[in-house]
Amino acid sequence: MHIIKTALLSYGMSGNVFHAPFIDLHPAFELTGSWERSKKLIQNDYPLVKSYPSLESILEDNDVELVVVNTPTGTHYDFTKKVLEAGKHAVVEKAFTITAAEAEELEKLAKEKGLKLAVFQNRRWDSDFKTVKKIIDSDILGEIVEVTFSYEAYLPALNTKAHLEEPSPAAGLIRDRGPHMIDQALFLFGYPKAIFADLAIMRTNSRVNDYFELILYYNDKRVRLKGGFLAREMAPSYIVHGKKGSFLKNRADQQEDRLLAGEKPNNTDWCAEPEKEWGVLHAEKDGKEFTEKIPSEKGNYLDFYEGVYQAIVNDSSEPVTATEGVQTMKIIEAALKSAKDGQIVKL
């Protein structure tokens, strides 16, 4: 078996929760270590790995084949470019870059060097989204006409991470949670013909956008994406209406909470949703109307890394391609323009 030796560029929450456990679990990956600037923590969890003192020390390590760029968004372009120029494959956290032009340049560079470049849109492998996709793909709802995806919480206090709250081209909820929802919409429905966006600051003393609503225009449907931090009581996170029925589903994937609690993923019984979180399908079949609860699919971020493995070893497409990452960045840029001008932006 080809073993892909992999290094992280950070071992904060992202590295500790979303990457290292799945790299360690997958038999075709070997975690070599992480760049750690001040706190040296990775060896507490993985004693046999390295704590790299610099990015250069990772790039100079000939054993490292894949680098996970999981640092703040503002660093993604520079760090990923250096990784690719060093001849190593890359996985890049969302948001992919700050601008679409940066994303396109990285995509071009990876192709020129024959390297794999994947964007870590892990929410495609959440149980709730997988369930929504299964329902849509089944055609039980008929032609889809109206969709609302929301990613809301009640978090009125400002985040203690300065890079998330200080005004910068990389800050704001549209760049934090927006990429997840935009990616999900494009994955299901393709690229829209136009977009309208409303961005706002709602929390006391906030200096960056912490509310957004996007409308994606398609010839035959409208897709609304919403995010905010002041929803103490939340509506269903996924509302899908078709000409034959509707499906409502809460955002209830268990993976992040269990990983934050220190659980390690496994291949057998990882994060099934409880029955109380199952979605509601209201549709008709053979001319008869019915309502029923739909068991949730199982989510597993390991499937993302299986896709990365297949891409590197068998030259298949990345699980989330750089092209898809570019499209998400173009939507974000169009949303910023729409919100500034107060107009629909054609794509």
Rank of each mutant, 00 (worst) to 15 (best):
M1I: 08
H2E: 06
H2G: 00
H2I: 09
K5P: 04
K5G: 00
F18S: 12
H19L: 02
H19G: 06
H26V: 02
P27L: 01
F29N: 11
L31A: 12
T32A: 15
W35Q: 12
E36I: 09
L41E: 15
I42P: 10
D45F: 03
L48Q: 14
K50W: 05
S54D: 01
D61N: 12
V64R: 13
P72D: 09
H76N: 14
T80M: 07
K82F: 03
E85K: 14
E85F: 03
A90V: 06
V91R: 11
V92F: 09
I98D: 03
T99P: 07
A101S: 15
E102I: 00
L106R: 11
G114I: 03
G114H: 08
Q121A: 15
N122W: 08
N122E: 11
N122P: 02
R124Y: 13
D126T: 10
F129M: 00
F129R: 03
K130V: 04
K134S: 06
D139F: 09
L141N: 12
E143S: 02
E146Y: 01
F149W: 10
A153C: 07
A157I: 04
A157W: 00
L164N: 14
L164F: 15
E166L: 10
G178R: 11
H180Y: 13
M181Q: 13
I182M: 01
Q184A: 08
L186W: 10
F189Q: 09
F189W: 06
Y191K: 14
Y191F: 15
K193L: 04
A200S: 15
A200G: 13
I201M: 02
M202C: 11
R203F: 08
S206L: 09
V208C: 06
V208I: 07
E213Y: 06
I215D: 10
D220G: 02
G227H: 03
L230T: 12
Y238K: 04
G242V: 07
D257P: 01
L260R: 15
N267S: 06
D269F: 08
C271F: 04
E273N: 14
P274E: 05
E275C: 02
E277S: 15
E277V: 07
G279Q: 05
G279C: 06
L281I: 05
H282D: 00
H282C: 09
A283W: 00
K285L: 07
K285C: 03
D286C: 05
G299R: 12
Y301S: 07
G307Y: 10
Y309T: 12
Q310A: 14
S317N: 14
M329G: 05
K330C: 00
I331D: 08
I332D: 01
A335C: 08
K337N: 07
S338Y: 08
K340C: 04
I344N: 07
I344L: 09
K346C: 01
